[in-house]
Write a protein that binds this DNA or RNA. Structure first.
Lengths: 231, 231
DNA sequence: TCACGAGTTGGTATCCAGTACCGTATCGCG
DNA sequence: CGCGATACGGTACTGGATACCAACTCGTGA
């Protein structure tokens, strides 16, 4: 199957590839008549192609809204894969892969905003979006688990990374932040702090919890004993 | 609209309410011919009812798999709502609401296991499940944000709670844990530890970090000083 | 210049989920 | 015995998605 994204045909009917024309026609119609109020036939008709061509360019009607999801997910996976399995390198890979996603949507600009409004309105598109989110989360977990011994902790970290990213992204899509990258860095630092404490992989961390009424001297001594016992 | 779950009709055609019969017929057919290979007509026919009745009992074909999602979500919401907006009470409410969900699935027993295998196999059902998860996560966030000042932190906590719960639940569904509640309590404690450090609202917790080469005696003394300084 | 084959497109038929509408049967009640 | 309410079944329709087939385009080579 050839790549539908490369326009080999010389200006078939109008400007842009068939895929692009379909995408534009779809988004315009969604704005005019709403997502559910628009049929695939109407999209194809406005783009000047047949109904069959639509389903050849996009797997489904929903796919018009998320055209680059698969390749973006693949980019994230490959970025994560090309990273030695150490905690330090792993964290760098995770944050870089996350920023890869943010960069993509920021570059999309207006298109990403239109998609955001659609996903907030149409339930089926919202479900589709969170399903995509889940795939990112799974990809992150699949990487983190290679260097984080505790499996649950790895899952929690993956959940936090995707949640933090999504929070920042949505803030930017709503126009609430001028510089998304500053917000992004702060959010990622917050996630990092959350997990930095208990890394536990190297055994260099100790956590102490006490009830409100514990004697400081006793707690201090207990910590000292615990450290000696582990050394 | 009357409640379809209460069988007022006296043994209409076979044993059990229409809803129950449809559910049983559906799950049996899914085992025999697969989810996508089963049509709603076949489900209705095996249950001895008309096609219309199916869509009256369940909003969609997928809803047969998640029959109690809405009420369970509502239970979680009400449990969270009936809780004063303090961090201590909030945490208790969150963990109780979470255990509410786990309890429901554990009580379902075999049915939950069959559903798990379906959701692992059929993509559309998997998407539907994560969409449901998202609703829980949103409900938790909606509660946590009332007593946690940092909005992102609230989102992260909600993500961790649902992730931890789901991890334990899936372990139990796969038969990997004998006592799900012990695992659940450990997982929830782990989430609590993750956020307890910086919460600082009650001031009852102290965390100590040290480099690998730190002297245990010094760390112990530092903890003691920190506790005294705070008291 | 023409024939050929690969790739692209369009149209038709079909399946199936989901909705709307209407006729009918059954039950409870006065 | 009527009468309203509720539940049920059937039919028809919409629209997404798939399968299949016919026609067209274009490059290549004889």
């Amino acid at each position: 199957m050839p790549d539908p994204r490369s326009s080999t045909s010389p200006a078939s009917r109008a400007a842009g590839s068939v895929r692009t024309r379909l995408q534009r026609a779809a988004l315009d119609l969604f704005d005019e008549k709403g997502y559910d109020g628009t049929t695939v036939d109407e999209i194809a008709e406005r783009a000047g192609v047949g109904r069959t061509t639509f389903f050849r360019a996009f797997r489904s009607k929903e796919d018009v809204i998320f055209p680059h999801h698969d390749e973006l997910l693949e980019q994230v996976r490959t970025r994560l894969a090309t990273s030695p399995a150490t905690e330090a390198n792993g964290l760098v890979a995770v944050f870089e892969a996350t920023s890869l996603v943010l960069r993509h949507y920021v570059d999309e600009g207006d298109l990403a905003v239109r998609r955001y409004h659609l996903t907030r309105t149409v339930p089926s598109l919202r479900d589709r979006e969170v399903a995509g989110l889940r795939q990112y989360q799974h990809a992150f977990w699949d990487h983190i688990r290679t260097w984080m011994p505790d499996d649950l902790q790895a899952k929690l970290m993956a959940a936090c990374v995707t949640t933090a990213h999504n929070t920042v992204l949505r803030q930017w899509l709503r126009g609430e932040v001028a510089d998304p990258w500053a917000t992004f860095n702060r959010a990622m630092a917050q996630v990092r702090e959350l997990f930095e404490v208990r890394g536990g992989a190297d055994g260099a961390t100790v956590v102490v919890l006490d009830g409100a009424g514990a004697d400081p001297a006793q707690v201090g001594a207990a910590v000292e004993r615990a450290l000696r016992a582990r050394a």
